[in-house]
Design a binder for these strands. Sequence first.
DNA 1: GAACATATTGAACGATCGTTCAGGTGCTCG
DNA 2: CGAGCACCTGAACGATCGTTCAATATGTTC
Lengths: 192, 192
Amino acid sequence: MRAVDAEEKVDRQARILEAALRLLSLQGISGVSMRAVAREAGVSLGLVNYHYEDKTSLIRAALHRIEEQDIALVEPDLTLEPEERLRAALKRVADPEFLTTEYLSLRLQLWALAQAHEDFERINTAAQRRYRAGLAALIHAARPELSPDECGERAADIDVIQNGLWLTALLGLDRDSIGRSVRRCEEIALAD
Amino acid sequence: MRAVDAEEKVDRQARILEAALRLLSLQGISGVSMRAVAREAGVSLGLVNYHYEDKTSLIRAALHRIEEQDIALVEPDLTLEPEERLRAALKRVADPEFLTTEYLSLRLQLWALAQAHEDFERINTAAQRRYRAGLAALIHAARPELSPDECGERAADIDVIQNGLWLTALLGLDRDSIGRSVRRCEEIALAD
DNA sequence: GAACATATTGAACGATCGTTCAGGTGCTCG
DNA sequence: CGAGCACCTGAACGATCGTTCAATATGTTC
C-alpha cells in the first residue's frame, strides 16, 4: 500500500497541472477556476497558488504542455527511411492516440485563448512555427532535391489541411473524410 | 439630429447583441460578463437581463448570429451559371470581407464553447450540417452527373480544408497558402 | 387625461472568483 | 534536540459575477 500511497502523493504539482488540463478540455476556460483545479487534483486551494504564482502562469504551463504534444507529432522516427519517416509523421495526426476528444479540445481551447490574451498568443505562434519547421525538415529529408522554400510551402499547405482535419474530427467525426485528407497530405508532401 | 438620436436609440436589443459579439470576439468568453456587455452597448445592466432572460440565452443568440453569417457563404448567387456560382462561393471564404479577425475569432469562440456546453454544441452541429448541405447542393448544380453521395464527399473534403484555412488565417495570416488552398478546393469540387 | 403595457434604470442579494496569509506538518542538517 | 526549509492547509479579503426587483420613464389606447 505504501507504494500506491506514495505514487498518489508525489508530484502534486504535476497533478495540479493535469487537473487544469482536464478541466480546460472538458469545460473550457470558464471551468478552470483555482478552486475547481484544487478540487479536481485533490489538493487544497492554497497549494495551487503555491506551485503556480497565479492563474495566468498555471494556464501558461498548461499551454506549454499542449505545445510539447504538438511538436512530438513531427519528431523524426530515426528507425525509418526518410520517406517512410515522413509518411509515418503524416499518419500520426490521424492516429486514434492523438485524435482523442480530450487532446483536440485542448488545442481548440488553446487557440481560443490565444485570441483573447496576447501572452498566450505568443506561446501559440511559437508552437505553430516549430511544428511547421519540423514538418518542412521531414519533407526535405524525403525529397532532398526540393528547395527549402518549396519544402516550407508544402509544409504550410499540409498544416492548413491538418488544422482542418483536427477541427473537423472534433466537431463531428467523419472517419472517411479524415482518411482522404491524410492521403491528400501525403500527395502534397511527396509530389515529384 | 432627431434622426441620429433615434437611430442610436432604437433597437437597444440589437446593440446589446452586437456588443456581446464584439466582446466575445476580442476577449473570449471570459470577457463576456453581463456588466461588460451593458457597458459596451451603452445601456444599463438591468436592460441586458430584460432583453435576454439570462446569460446563456444571450450567448445562444450570439451563436445563432454567427450561424447566419456562415450559411450566407454558400447562399447560391442566382445571377451566375452553376459552375461560376460554385466558384464564387468557394472564393467567398477567402474574401477579405469574411476573412476578418473579428469574424474568424467569433467562429473559434463558437467552436470552443460548443466543446464545453452541450446546448451550444447542438447549435454548432446544426450550422455545420446546413453549411455542408449548401455546399453539396452547389456542387450538384455544377456537376449534375455526380451522385448525391459523391457531392457530399466532396463537400466534406472541402469543408475540412476550409476549416483549416480559416484557422490558419486566424492564427497567423499566410496569404499564399490561403490562395493555394482555395485553388485546391476548386480542384476537388470541379474534378471530372 | 387616466390606464396601461413596454422599456429602462441602478441598487441590492448571495455566490464565486483570485489572491493573501498565518499557521501546521514532515524532513534534513548541524 | 532544535533551527531551518519545503510543502501544504483553510480561513479570510475585496472584487466581480449573474440575477432579482422596486421605481421610473416612455409611448399607446380608450
